[in-house]
C-alpha cells in the first residue's frame, strides 16, 4: 500500500498519560471482525471513550473538545500486547499521524511505521513536561520534523531516534514490499536451497 509522505507536522496534541497502554485498549478484540483497513477510528479506545450505555465518557481526552490535533501523547510502553495492526489502523483512521511516548512496544512500533504513523520516542522528563504543558494549555503547538529528527514546542526541543531506512520510507511514502520485491531473484535461490 503506498502511503502518505511525512516531512514536518505542526499540530496541537491529545494527552493520554496512562502507562502500558496495550493494543486491547487501543482497539478491543470484538472490533477486529472487519476484513478491510478502514473504519477502525470509530472504535479507537472504545472502552475508555464510551461507557456501557455507549455514552461518551466526559473526562476522557478524546471526548474533551479542548484537545484536538494529529499528535497523540501517551505514557510509557505504548502499544504493548497483541500484534494486531488494527491498532495502528485505528490511530491513523482517527486522524493521528504521530504518537509520542517515552517507550514503545516493538510490534506496535513496526506496525505504526508501516502505516504512516510516526512513533516519536522522547525522554521521560520531556514526556512529562509535554503532557503537563498540553494539559495546562491545549492550544500548544508541537512540531515534529522528521528530516531533522526533532520534536519541539515552545522553547523545548529534543532530538529523536529513527532508523535511516524507515525515515526514508516515511519521507518518500515507500513501503517494505517495494524493497523485498526487488530481491526476488535472491529469495528464489534461497528458497530452492532450503
Amino acid at each position: 500500500m503506498s502511503k502518505d509522505k511525512f516531512t514536518i507536522l505542526k499540530s496541537t496534541g491529545v494527552p493520554i498519560p496512562a502507562e502500558n497502554i496495550d493494543t486491547d485498549q487501543i482497539i478491543p478484540a470484538r472490533f477486529l471482525k472487519a476484513t478491510t483497513r478502514e473504519g477502525f477510528g470509530d472504535n479507537l479506545f472504545r472502552d475508555w471513550r464510551y461507557d456501557s450505555d455507549n455514552k461518551p465518557v466526559k473526562d476522557f481526552a478524546l471526548n474533551n473538545p479542548t484537545y484536538t490535533g494529529k499528535i497523540l501523547v501517551a505514557g510509557k510502553n505504548f502499544g504493548c500486547g497483541s500484534s494486531r495492526e488494527h491498532a495502528a489502523w485505528a490511530i491513523y483512521d482517527y486522524g493521528f499521524r504521530v504518537v509520542v511516548s517515552s517507550f514503545f512496544a516493538d510490534i506496535f512500533k513496526n506496525n505504526a511505521l508501516n502505516n504512516a504513523v510516526l512513533p516519536v520516542v522522547v525522554s521521560d522528563s520531556f514526556l512529562k513536561n509535554l503532557l503537563d504543558t498540553i494539559q495546562k494549555n491545549p492550544s500548544t503547538d508541537v512540531t515534529v520534523d522528521l528530516q531533522n529528527q526533532i520534536i519541539s514546542y515552545g522553547t523545548q526541543s529534543q532530538k529523536f531516534e529513527i532508523n535511516a531506512y524507515k525515515r526514508e520510507c516515511l519521507i518518500n511514502g515507500y513501503d517494505d514490499i517495494d524493497y523485498l520485491l526487488s530481491l526476488n531473484k535472491e529469495i528464489r535461490e534461497f528458497d530452492l536451497a532450503h
Binding site: M1, S83, R84, E85, H86, A88, I107, N110, N111, N114, N115, D175, D176, I177, L180
Partner: peptide, 10 residues
C-alpha cells in the same frame, strides 16, 4: 515471532 498484517503481506 508475531508480526502485523503489513508484514503478513510481505
Amino acid at each position: 515471532f508475531g508480526i502485523g498484517t503489513s508484514e503478513v503481506e510481505q
